[in-house]
Design a protein around this nucleic acid. Structure first.
Length: 478
RNA sequence: GGCGGUAUCGUCUAGAGGCCCAGGACACAGCCCUCUCAAGGCUGGAACACGGGUUCGAAUCCCGUUACCGCUACCA
C-alpha cells in the first residue's frame, strides 16, 4: 500500500519554522519512500482562522518547494462527516450524550482545584438513564457528545520514540462533538485522517498526549490505525518555545532576510534529523536520498539564526550564478539598481558579477548591497576606506596616476592586468597592497570587494579608468 | 497535582557495550594563506544532568532524582 502523509496546519498565523519543518519531514518521507503528501487546513476554529493565514501557508510551502499532491482539504468543509461519525459512535455505544452545562463543569473544576485535588470527569454523573435522555431530548436540551473511554491501556510504536503506553484510566471521557454540533479537534483529526486514508501521522510531539485518545477513536470507528511519528519541538535561543520575542519565526521572514529556500530546508532538516556521520550541507536531492525515519531525533532543538546564515552562505557559494539569477535579479531591480531590460541586455555581464559576489555573501541581501557600486556611475567613497588607504592624499594620487598611466596601455583581461600591476608595484618599490588597496577604494569606494583584477574586468576599461581619474581629481582637489 | 516525553561542548549533532580520558559543524580566540573581504587550512578553550545498579567493561542497558517541555478544555 502506498504511503499517504499529510501536513495539517491551522491557519491562525503565518507558516512557523516548526510547522515548516514538520511539512518538510512529511514531504521528505514521501519523496524518499513514495506515496502522496497531502495538505489539510484545519480551519474548524472559525474565530481564529483567516484567509490570509491560509494564503501565507501556501506561499511559505511553495517558497520552500514543498509541493503537495491532490486537492487541499479544508477541515471546515467536513463537518457533516464529523457529525455523522459522532452519531455512529453514539449508535455503537462508544459515545453518549452529556447534558451537563459547561458552566457547571467549569465550577466543579474550579472547586476541585481550590481543594487542591485533580478534577476527574465522572461518567456516572453525566450519563443519564435512557428515560431521562429521552425526556431531555424532547425538551430540546443542548448536549455534547462524549467518547466513552474504554478500560485498559493504549499504546503504539512511535517511529521516533519507540513504544509509548498510556493507561486509559488517566484519560477522562472527552467531548467529541460540542453542543453546537461542531467537532472537537481530536475527533475531527481522526475523522479526516481516516477519510484521507492517511498511513503515517507525522507531527509535533505536543500531540503525544492526544494520540491515545485518537487511537481509541480509530478503534471505535472500526478504522485501520496509521503509524505515528512525533517530532520534537523547535525552541528559541533561550530554550523557550519559539515566539515573536525571538524575532523572525515565520518562514516568510527568512525569505525577506535573504535566505535561500534550499538553505532553509537544509538547516531545518538538521534540527531533529541527522543523516548520520558528519554530513551537513546538502541539496534537496541529497536530503531526499539520505532521508530515513531512523535518523529522526527525539530531543527538542534550539533555532540558531547564526548557523542558518552560515548555511545560507554555503548554499550561496554552491549555487551557480545562473540558478541564483531568478532569485537575485528581482531584488536588484527592486533596489532600483537597474531596470529589467538593462539586466537582460547585459545578461552575461550580470551573471559574471553575480558569480563574483555570491561566494563572499551570506544572504542575497549582501549580494545586492555589494552589487550597488557596479551599477552606479561612480564610486562612493566610504569614510573608513578613505581613512585607511588614502591617508596620504598626495601619495595616493600619485600612485593612482601611475596606475592610470600603466592601465591605459594594457590589454583588458585579468591575467594581463595582474601582470601589469604587479610589475608596476615592483617598479615603484612598494608591496602590492600599497597599490591594490588605494586602487580598490578608487574603483568601488569600499574596504572589501572581489579580487582587484576581477573588479577591473567586471567594471570594464572605460569605467575603471574613469573611476581612477575621478579618484585622482578627488584627492588633488582643495 | 496526575500522566506522558526529553536529557552529549553555549548551539546543531556523531555515537546503537569495548574503536570514545567522546568525533564533526556553528559561534568564539589565535595562526596560516592573501591585494581586501569572504572562503579554505591549522590550533585552542568547551559536553556524556545527578545518583544507584547490570556488566570483565556504559555516553550507550535498567531504576530513581532533578530540570525542561507537552497533555490534563464543549482550544487547536
Amino acid at each position: 500500500m502506498s504511503n499517504r502523509l499529510r501536513f495539517a496546519p491551522s491557519p491562525t498565523g503565518y507558516l512557523h519554522v516548526g510547522g515548516a519543518r514538520t511539512a518538510l519531514f512529511n514531504w521528505l518521507y514521501v519523496r524518499r519512500y513514495g506515496g502522496q503528501f497531502l495538505l489539510r487546513i484545519e480551519d474548524t476554529d472559525q474565530a481564529r482562522s483567516t484567509e490570509e493565514s491560509t494564503r501565507a501557508i501556501f506561499e511559505g510551502l511553495r517558497w520552500l518547494g514543498l509541493t503537495w499532491d491532490e486537492e487541499v482539504t479544508h477541515q471546515g468543509a467536513n463537518v457533516e462527516r464529523h457529525q455523522a461519525d459522532a452519531r455512529q459512535l453514539l449508535a455503537l455505544g462508544h459515545a453518549y450524550r452529556d447534558f451537563t452545562p459547561p458552566e457547571q463543569l467549569d465550577r466543579l473544576r474550579k472547586e476541585a482545584e481550590a481543594r487542591g485535588e485533580a478534577f476527574r470527569f465522572d461518567r456516572r454523573l453525566a450519563e443519564l438513564p435512557p428515560d431521562d435522555v429521552k425526556r431531555r431530548l424532547e425538551r430540546g436540551d443542548p448536549y455534547a457528545i462524549r467518547f466513552r473511554v474504554p478500560d485498559g491501556e493504549t499504546s503504539w510504536d512511535d517511529l521516533v520514540h519507540g513504544t509509548i503506553t498510556f493507561p486509559n484510566r488517566d484519560i477522562d471521557d472527552f467531548v467529541i462533538l460540542r453542543s453546537d454540533g461542531s467537532p472537537v479537534y481530536n475527533f475531527a483529526v481522526v475523522s479526516d485522517d481516516v477519510a484521507m486514508r492517511i498511513t503515517l501521522v507525522m507531527r509535533g510531539d505536543d500531540h503525544i498526549s492526544n494520540t491515545p485518545k485518537q487511537i481509541m477513536l480509530y478503534r471505535a470507528l472500526g478504522a485501520e490505525l496509521p503509524r505515528f511519528a512525533h517530532l520534537p519541538m523547535i525552541h528559541g535561543m533561550d530554550g523557550r518555545k519559539l515566539s515573536k520575542r525571538h524575532g523572525a519565526t515565520a518562514v516568510g521572514d527568512y525569505q525577506h532576510l535573504g535566505i535561500l529556500p534550499s538553505a532553509m530546508n537544509n538547516f531545518l532538516a538538521l534540527l531533529g534529523w541527522s543523516p548520520g556521520g558528519d554530513r551537513e550541507v546538502m541539496t534537496m536531492a541529497e536530503m531526499i536520498e539520505l532521508f530515513s525515519a531512523d535518523g529522526l531525533l527525539a530531543k527538542a532543538s534550539i533555532f540558531d539564526p547564526k548557523k542558518l546564515e552560515w548555511m545560507n552562505g554555503q548554499h550561496l557559494s554552491r549555487t551557480s550564478a545562473a540558478e541564483l539569477d531568478p532569485i537575485v535579479r528581482p531584488l536588484v531591480i527592486q533596489a532600483g539598481l537597474a531596470a529589467a531590460e538593462e539586466l537582460e541586455a547585459r545578461r552575461d555581464w550580470w551573471l559574471h558579477l553575480l558569480d563574483l559576489l555570491r561566494v563572499r555573501a551570506r544572504t542575497t541581501h549582501d549580494i545586492v548591497r555589494q552589487a550597488a557600486t557596479y551599477f552606479a556611475d561612480g564610486a562612493q567613497y566610504d569614510a573608513d576606506a578613505v581613512a585607511k588607504h588614502w591617508k596620504d592624499r598626495a601619495a595616493s594620487a600619485d600612485t593612482l596616476a601611475a596606475v592610470h598611466a600603466r592601465l591605459s596601455e594594457t590589454a583588458w583581461n585579468a591575467p594581463v592586468l595582474e601582470e601589469a600591476l604587479r610589475k608596476l608595484s615592483e617598479e615603484l618599490g612598494v608591496s602590492t597592497g600599497k597599490v591594490f588597496q588605494p586602487l580598490r577604494v578608487a574603483l568601488v569606494g569600499q574596504l572589501a570587494s572581489p579580487g582587484i583584477f576581477d573588479v577591473l574586468s567586471v567594471l570594464g576599461r572605460e569605467r575603471s579608468l574613469a573611476r581612477i581619474r575621478a579618484a585622482i581629481d578627488f584627492l588633488r582637489a582643495d
